[in-house]
Simulated scan of single mutants.
Amino acid sequence: MSENKTSLRIGIVAGEASGDILGAGLVAALQERFDEVIVEGIAGPRMLALGAKSLFPMERLSVMGLVEPLKRLPELLGIRKRLRQHFLANPPDVFVGIDSPDFNLGLEESLKAAGIPTVHYVSPSVWAWRKGRIKKIARAVDHMLTLLPFEADFYQEHGVPVSFVGHPLADDLPLAPDVEGAREELGFDVEDRIVALLPGSRGGEVRYLGPLFLQAARWCHQRQPDLKFVLPAANDARLSEIQALLKDFPELPLTLLDGRSHEALTACDAVLIASGTATLETLLLKKPMVVSYKMGAMSYAIFSRLLQTPWVSLPNLLARRELVPEILQDAATPESLGAELLKFFQDPLLRDQLQREFNDIHQQLRRNASARAADAVCALIKPKQ
């Protein structure tokens, strides 16, 4: 990059709120390096607040599951075609696709072929399944930015330029969480022994894991009556579903929250949690956890055959060994989950050792991610003639 360069035109496409958060961090870091940063593509409220121009509403890309994307496929393909035409007619200095790989990689491949430098921010789970996608990624991406270190190792092995930038959540969360403050906010006493239950944010997850987690909580409470429980519902729909489930557990000392998962995780002593991204926040808050997941028998048969890693949870993937128990599908019973949870209260040394290892991983992920991502983006920018 030329030292005299004072303006930057960047194309960005983020398909959901988490991508908007990453994009805003990147844009803010770039604004510190340039007098003017022109951002256009698809952005959410955080990037819009920094001056980005969104050519389409970000919500149009925020589709989940298998059926909904297929129903919306013509619209999504139309949006991608118009973005491609726009960027080819008005080439940015660099294009950054943030997550949303099914949408962004095809766009990046076209732009890279036209000589526009391309960056993909957040690795697809190519290291876990569908490894053949690495060929398309190599064609589409000049540089991959990964949030996790083992992801960067995979790309290096396959000859794809990559930077491990760290995780913004590790930058944002303190190394020592304010447990007393969180307990006071939620109405718990300092000496309370608290288990947080996080059965997931999707309807299917609560359907499979909600009753199971509550049964495991009952099993634990019968054996350790001083335990208290807290369950943060991810949204209004989950709140209603969990309220209906709780009618079968009148004896359970449980505080149901509307959102506020961060406070619940900070306040608790241990966590029973669905496998997913929330396990990373749980790790960064230094909370011992038992990870579980259940799905339909057919879906699990397909998933288990496709999976190419020994573990499913981020703590174990980051540690590259079984740091926390994973109890999946038919093995997940109230007794098996409850027995693992109670170990954290019966063995303080186990809890202390886990917290030390979580702290080490937190330090590893705390790398000023947005600034590192901006460095990698700047390195791709070609000097203007």
Results as ranks from 00 to 15, higher is better:
residue 384 K to M: 00
residue 157 E to P: 02
residue 226 D to T: 11
residue 152 A to R: 06
residue 295 M to F: 00
residue 360 D to E: 07
residue 226 D to W: 07
residue 368 N to C: 10
residue 378 C to G: 08
residue 15 G to Q: 05
residue 276 G to Q: 09
residue 198 L to C: 12
residue 286 K to T: 03
residue 255 T to G: 09
residue 332 A to H: 15
residue 356 R to G: 14
residue 382 K to P: 02
residue 49 A to L: 06
residue 259 G to A: 03
residue 209 L to R: 10
residue 367 R to C: 15
residue 271 V to F: 05
residue 255 T to V: 12
residue 354 L to C: 13
residue 309 T to W: 01
residue 230 V to E: 10
residue 29 A to W: 02
residue 239 L to Y: 07
residue 371 A to K: 05
residue 318 L to Q: 00
residue 226 D to S: 15
residue 241 E to Y: 13
residue 217 A to G: 05
residue 35 D to T: 15
residue 354 L to H: 10
residue 226 D to N: 08
residue 240 S to C: 04
residue 292 S to P: 13
residue 86 H to A: 11
residue 28 A to E: 11
residue 357 E to N: 15
residue 44 G to V: 00
residue 59 E to G: 02
residue 337 L to G: 13
residue 92 P to N: 09
residue 101 P to S: 09
residue 266 T to W: 13
residue 22 L to A: 00
residue 57 P to E: 14
residue 357 E to L: 08
residue 317 L to E: 08
residue 354 L to P: 12
residue 278 A to I: 14
residue 56 F to L: 10
residue 139 R to V: 08
residue 126 V to Q: 05
residue 161 P to E: 04
residue 199 P to A: 12
residue 40 E to R: 15
residue 225 P to Y: 02
residue 217 A to Q: 04
residue 64 M to N: 09
residue 360 D to T: 08
residue 352 D to K: 04
residue 98 I to Q: 00
residue 289 M to Q: 09
residue 284 L to D: 03
residue 74 P to W: 12
residue 366 R to P: 06
residue 255 T to A: 10
residue 257 L to K: 10
residue 247 K to A: 07
residue 318 L to M: 05
residue 91 P to S: 07
residue 86 H to T: 07
residue 240 S to Q: 07
residue 305 R to G: 01
residue 39 V to P: 12
residue 185 E to Y: 11
residue 270 A to Y: 14
residue 320 R to W: 06
residue 151 E to R: 03
residue 104 N to V: 05
residue 250 P to W: 09
residue 54 S to C: 11
residue 302 I to K: 10
residue 157 E to H: 01
residue 171 D to S: 04
residue 154 F to M: 00
residue 308 Q to Y: 04
residue 263 E to N: 13
residue 283 L to F: 03
residue 92 P to M: 13
residue 202 R to Q: 11
residue 34 F to L: 13
residue 179 V to T: 08
residue 269 D to A: 07
residue 261 S to R: 13
residue 376 A to V: 09
residue 58 M to G: 07
residue 58 M to I: 12
residue 10 I to P: 05
residue 152 A to L: 09
residue 170 A to L: 09
residue 164 F to Y: 07
residue 232 P to K: 06
residue 131 K to N: 04
residue 295 M to W: 02
residue 335 E to S: 11
residue 271 V to A: 14
residue 299 S to A: 15
residue 269 D to L: 07
residue 285 L to E: 12
residue 362 H to S: 10
residue 362 H to Y: 05
residue 205 E to R: 01
residue 74 P to E: 09
residue 3 E to C: 12
residue 358 F to T: 09
residue 380 L to S: 07
residue 315 P to E: 06
residue 165 V to D: 03
residue 120 H to R: 00
residue 82 R to I: 09
residue 53 K to G: 01
residue 129 W to Y: 07
residue 334 P to K: 08
